[in-house]
Amino acid sequence: MFVIRRAIERDVFQVRKLLREAGLNDKGIDEHIDHFFVVEMPADEGETPQLAGAVGIEVHGQYGLLRSFVLERAPWNTKVGMNMIQILLSYASKLRLSHVYLLAGASQEFFTQLGFSEIAFDELPVDIRESEHVERSRNQGTAMVFCCVPSHQQ
């Protein structure tokens, strides 16, 4: 059993740990933790619950940048991963974001199943293109850029 919930300040350490273990960038997480969701595995009484996944969004004006999607490997991870992204997109809709962007490598098919379409880097809005996360990722050679329109815009 697991719970997907909004992240809180005390989750920053565990989210960073998950990201580092997955080889993902953890810079800037603390600045955006209010826009993160985590997968929490219940713990026995008296123990601290452990995080098994996280996904967040950076808000830049009317745009969102999906980042830091990580989920421990387990038989249930595909379904939970899809739920996490759907929850995040619902959240983006509540924030009235016009578009949500992401940079992806090996997960292209996963994101296209969830309504994201590949776009050219030059199509990114300036606010997103100039974000620290995109600049760092671009310097490391992250290739694919995707975009999704939250449901309130469709």
Results as ranks from 00 to 15, higher is better:
127 D>L: 12
127 D>P: 08
55 V>L: 09
151 S>K: 10
67 R>G: 00
105 G>F: 00
55 V>M: 05
145 V>E: 01
78 T>L: 13
49 P>N: 08
15 V>T: 05
40 E>L: 07
121 F>E: 09
85 I>F: 07
20 R>S: 08
28 G>H: 02
92 A>Q: 04
77 N>M: 12
133 H>A: 13
64 G>P: 09
26 D>Q: 11
72 E>S: 15
41 M>A: 10
88 L>D: 03
55 V>E: 04
84 M>A: 06
47 E>G: 08
1 M>F: 00
118 E>K: 13
66 L>V: 00
30 D>T: 07
96 R>D: 10
31 E>H: 09
145 V>D: 01
101 Y>T: 01
123 E>N: 11
39 V>F: 04
10 R>A: 15
95 L>W: 06
10 R>I: 15
99 H>C: 04
80 V>I: 10
13 F>H: 13
135 E>P: 02
86 Q>A: 13
59 V>R: 08
132 E>W: 01
84 M>F: 03
113 Q>M: 15
69 F>G: 06
147 C>A: 06
57 I>N: 00
104 A>E: 00
146 F>A: 05
35 H>G: 01
95 L>D: 06
9 E>I: 04
18 L>Q: 05
71 L>V: 13
115 G>Y: 11
148 C>V: 01
88 L>Y: 00
134 V>Q: 06
37 F>Y: 02
130 E>K: 12
121 F>H: 07
5 R>A: 07
148 C>D: 02
142 T>H: 12
107 S>G: 03
96 R>H: 13
60 H>F: 04
68 S>Y: 05
40 E>W: 05
138 R>V: 07
50 Q>A: 15
118 E>S: 12
41 M>G: 07
111 F>P: 06
60 H>K: 05
121 F>D: 08
97 L>R: 11
57 I>E: 01
88 L>M: 06
10 R>L: 14
54 A>T: 00
66 L>A: 02
121 F>C: 01
80 V>N: 10
16 R>P: 01
20 R>A: 09
134 V>C: 10
73 R>Y: 09
17 K>H: 14
151 S>G: 06
145 V>I: 08
99 H>I: 01
31 E>Q: 12
21 E>T: 08
72 E>A: 15
119 I>E: 12
24 L>D: 13
95 L>Q: 14
2 F>E: 10
150 P>W: 07
69 F>W: 11
113 Q>S: 15
72 E>W: 10
67 R>I: 01
45 E>G: 11
91 Y>W: 10
57 I>D: 01
79 K>M: 10
6 R>E: 05
4 I>A: 07
32 H>E: 10
126 V>I: 13
51 L>I: 14
91 Y>R: 02
13 F>I: 09
153 Q>C: 14
9 E>K: 08
152 H>D: 15
49 P>R: 13
151 S>L: 11
19 L>I: 05
1 M>A: 08
138 R>I: 07
71 L>M: 15
